[in-house]
Structures are given as C-alpha cells and as structure tokens.
C-alpha cells in the first residue's frame, strides 16, 4: 500500500494515538525545559524521575488492592491516590537530585559539562538500583482503569485512557501557568531565567527558586509516569530512557526554556511519530520524529517558539 493511501486510512487512529503519547512527552519536556531555562543544564536523570513516578503509582495501586471489579468510586480514588503518590515521589526525587548531584557542583563553580556527567551518573545509578530491587523484567500494572471506547471516527478510537491523559495534562498545564505567571514564586523563577545575577540582587532566593523548579519538573514527570504506566500497563527500570529522550526532543523542538513551546513540541512529536509510523514502516517512526527535529534545528535553531534562556555574563 502506498504511503499516502495508508496515511489516509489510518489518519484518525494516528491522530488520537499521537495526541495521547504527545501529551506525556509534553509533561516530561516541561521539567527539562524549565531546568534548562534557568541553569542551561540538560537534566539527564529526568527520565528516571519519570520512572520513579510510575513505580510509586504501581506501589500504591498494588497496596490498595483494587481490581477492575471494584466500584467506580473506589477505582477513581485509587487512581487519584496513585497519581498523588507518583507526583510526590517524583517531586521529592527531583529535589534530592538537585541537592545531591547539581548544587554541590554549582557551589564549587564546576563547569556545566561536569554537572551533565553528574546527572548521567545519577541516571545510571537510579536505573541499576531499581533493577536490583525490582528485577530487569517488566512489572505489569493491574488492569484497574476500564478501557472504554468513547468515540469512533473512521479508523480512530478515542478511549477512556486517552481522555484521562489529556485531561490530566491539560489540568497540570493550567496549574503550572497559574504558578509561574501569577505567583511570587513563579516571578522569582522567571526572573532567575532572565538574569540570575540581577534576580539575586533583587532579593530572589536563588537556591530555593532552583529547588522549586526541580520540584515542579518532578511533579510533571511524576504525573507523566503514572499516565504512561496506565496507558501501557507496565513499568520497568528502563521505563524512563526512551520517554526521557523524547521529552528532550520535544523541549528542543518547541524552543528550550519556553513552556508553551515544550507542550507544542511534545504534541507535535507525538503526532509526527504516529503519522510517520502510519506512512512508513513502523521501525522508522523515530526517524520521522528525530528527522523533523533536525530540520527544525537547521532552519530555526532557536526552536519553533524560540528559546528563553538566562542571560549569562
């Protein structure tokens, strides 16, 4: 079948699948882009923060012992508890990461690539710790969240899980926007992202603002982790590796340091992967995503919506 014919046939399926997975990429990209915006640092352990969220949620779901036959209210409460646990665990882990892996290096004036290596090391250490504790196989999520098809448009189906992912992502973004744009804390972070020296002189507590940035990024990643776990019904010690890379791609695609850009980048990446995967052989779908990134970087190196980075002196 030709590429276009197959694309036409599977357009709606790819559209819905792409938006769902793209929302999760966006949640990961938010944390990466915020940290990069204020520290000019790629947090290579961000994928592991995401993975920790997926594990925490699985722990809560198993402990509560809910199953598909539980009452609707029971399932809703259990998923809410799992999501809160995931966000708390990922948020705490992200702050710990900043305190252990990045802050001491910054205090001693280490070059930025040293911090990058430190982050990579933490990434491997966290992965291997989880591999030792939980094994190297997949851990299945209990099938709690009912899989219902809500709407069928030609080849595409919108399922209850996709709706859950999109609602949660949208809610998180609105909340994030409120915090960053309309609170004192958010103003501090934005000031830091524009000019750290001036922000410090104006009385912004820089260490605290950085810590809060990591916390917010961790909360988003944790939410992404539990959604990813529910969507694919699994977690594993390597869960964060590929989504972490995709989140980074999404952040760069949209413009590093740019929050709406991260969301746009995530959704676009999800869509391009799935539309490309429909058109080309499935193993080439990552080629489509990364190829698009390459093109964007050639013609618009600052990303689609433009970089917003701290001024460095």
């Amino acid at each position: 079948m030709s590429c276009l014919a197959s694309l036409q046939q599977q357009f709606f399926a790819s559209l819905f699948n792409g938006l769902a997975i793209g929302s999760i990429y966006a949640l990961i990209a938010l944390g990466l882009t915020m940290v990069y915006g204020i520290l000019n640092l790629i947090n290579f352990a961000h994928g592991e923060i995401f993975m920790i969220g997926a594990f925490a949620a699985l722990g809560v779901l198993s402990a509560l012992g809910v199953s598909a036959s539980s009452s609707g209210l029971g399932i809703t409460l259990a998923i809410a508890a799992a999501a809160l646990a995931a966000m708390a665990a990922s948020g705490a882990a992200a702050m710990l990461l900043e305190v252990v892996a990045y802050r001491p290096l910054r205090r001693r004036g280490a070059p930025r690539h040293a911090a990058m290596i430190s982050g990579l090391g933490c990434s491997v250490a966290i992965q291997e710790t989880f591999a030792l504790a939980f094994g190297r196989g997949n851990l299945p999520y209990p099938s709690v969240f009912p899989l219902k098809t809500l709407l069928v448009v030609e080849s595409g189906r919108i399922t209850s899980r996709m709706v859950l992912i999109m609602i949660c992502t949208l809610g998180m973004m609105i909340l994030l926007d409120r915090v960053v744009m309309h609170t004192r804390l958010g103003r501090g972070i934005r000031a830091l992202a524009q000019d750290p020296v001036a922000a410090g002189l104006m009385g912004v507590n820089i260490s605290r603002a950085i810590l809060v940035t990591f916390l917010i990024g961790g909360l988003c990643a944790g939410l992404g982790g539990v959604l990813y776990g529910i969507y694919f019904s699994k977690t594993s010690y390597m869960l964060g590796f590929i989504p972490g890379l995709k989140g980074l791609t999404a952040a760069i695609l949209g413009g590093v340091g740019n929050l709406p850009g991260a969301v746009l980048g995530g959704l676009l990446l999800g869509l391009m992967e799935n539309l490309g995967g429909a058109c080309l052989p499935g193993q080439l779908k990552d080629v489509v995503g990364f190829g698009a990134l390459l093109l964007v970087l050639v013609f618009r190196p600052q990303g689609l919506l433009g970089e917003r980075l701290a001024r460095r002196t």
């Binding site: 599977q10 694919f232 193993q283």
Partner: peptide, 18 residues
C-alpha cells in the same frame, strides 16, 4: 519490525487492524 525497547506500538497496531 518493531523496536524491542519501545513501548508504543500503536502505529503497527493500526496497520494490522486496517
């Protein structure tokens, strides 16, 4: 062919159902 390290096989699944 699918990616053994990937989790999202939705485009392959769509092709199969189509």
């Amino acid at each position: 062919a699918i990616d053994p390290n990937g989790d999202d096989f939705s485009s392959t699944v769509s092709k199969i159902t189509a």
